[in-house]
Design a protein around this nucleic acid. Structure first.
Lengths: 146, 146
DNA sequence: ATAATTGCAAACTGTTTGCAGCACG
DNA sequence: CGTGCTGCAAACAGTTTGCAATTAT
C-alpha cells in the first residue's frame, strides 16, 4: 500500500534501528493516514498506548518532530492556538481546509501564483522559503450543529 | 494620529472603564504600531513594565485576547510553534510575510480568489469562515547572517 | 456604593530534557 | 557488546484561572 510505503521509507530515513515503538508508530500512522484523520500529539499518544502499552510520551514527541521535518506529517495551526498533525495526503505541495469545531482537515491544491510570491520577495527584500495557506470553517456535520 | 485613534476606539469598545493599565497598553501599542513591530505576549509585558511598573501578567493576556477578537491585533503563527502579535497595518483584509529568524512581520495584500474559495467550500461541504496566508522567509538582515 | 478591573499566585497544558537502563544490530 | 533508542520523571514555557483588593464611575 502506498501510504505504508511512505511511512516505512520515512522511518528508515530517520532511524538506524527498527524498534518496537517505531513499528507501532508506523502502523498507527498508516491507519490514520488511510482514514485521512488528523490528530493532536496527545491523541496520537493515547491511540498508541492502546496498541502498544507503555510507550513513552517523549518517544512520541521525538518521532513527530522528525516526521514533520521529513514532511511526512503536516502541522496545521488553528486560530485558537491549538494544532493538529496529519499524514500528507499527497507527496506534493498542498495546503489545507480545516474545521474549527472538530479539527478535521482536508488537503487542498490551491496556491498563490509562484511569480507573485517571488515578486513579493524581491519587493520586500525577503528570501522567501515557504508559505502556509489554511482555510478555516465548519465541516458539514459541525455546520449543522450550528 | 490614525493608529492612536484605532487603538483608542478598540479600547472604548472592550472596556467600560478607562484604567491606568489600559492607558499604558494603548500607548505602548500605538508606539509598536507606528514602528510596525511585532511582539510576543511576553515582549509586550516586559515593555509595559518599563513604562508602567507593577502591571500584571494576566491583565496583559486578557487585553491581548480582547484586541485579537476585535481584530485590532493579528496573531502570526510560525512553523516552529511560536507566535507573535502585530497591530494590523490597515483596517482591511490582509495577510503576512514573516521572517523566521527575527520574527519581523510585513503586511501583504495578496489573497486567493474569492470565487475559488467559495467553490472549495461548496465542493467540500464546508461553511468557510476565514483563512490565513503566511509567507515565511528571511528578511534582508537575517538573510545576510546566512 | 458597587461592579468592573486588577495583580498575585497557583494551576494547567503541551512540550522538552537529562539520564539510567534496555535491546537492536 | 556498544550505542541508539527508550521510558520515566522532572523541568519548562506560555497561558489561564480563582480570588481578594482596588478603583472608576
Amino acid at each position: 500500500m502506498e501510504i505504508e510505503q511512505r511511512v516505512g521509507e520515512a522511518f528508515r530515513e530517520i532511524s538506524i534501528r527498527a524498534t518496537r515503538p517505531r513499528e507501532a508508530i508506523a502502523r498507527q500512522l498508516t491507519e490514520l493516514g488511510e482514514k485521512g484523520e488528523s490528530f493532536s500529539a496527545d491523541d496520537f499518544l493515547r491511540r498508541l498506548r492502546r496498541a502498544a502499552p507503555g510507550i513513552g510520551r517523549a518517544t512520541v514527541y521525538r518521532s513527530i518532530e522528525k516526521l514533520v521535518a521529513l514532511r511526512l506529517l503536516d502541522r496545521i495551526d488553528f486560530e485558537d492556538g491549538t494544532h493538529v498533525y496529519r499524514l500528507c495526503g499527497s507527496a506534493g505541495h498542498h495546503h489545507h481546509l480545516a474545521c474549527t469545531a472538530c479539527h478535521r482537515v482536508v488537503d487542498l491544491d490551491v496556491c498563490l501564483d509562484k511569480g507573485q510570491i517571488e515578486a513579493i520577495g524581491r519587493r520586500e527584500h525577503f528570501r522567501i522559503e515557504n508559505h502556509a495557506i489554511t482555510l478555516f470553517g465548519r465541516c458539514r456535520e459541525c455546520a449543522k450543529a450550528h
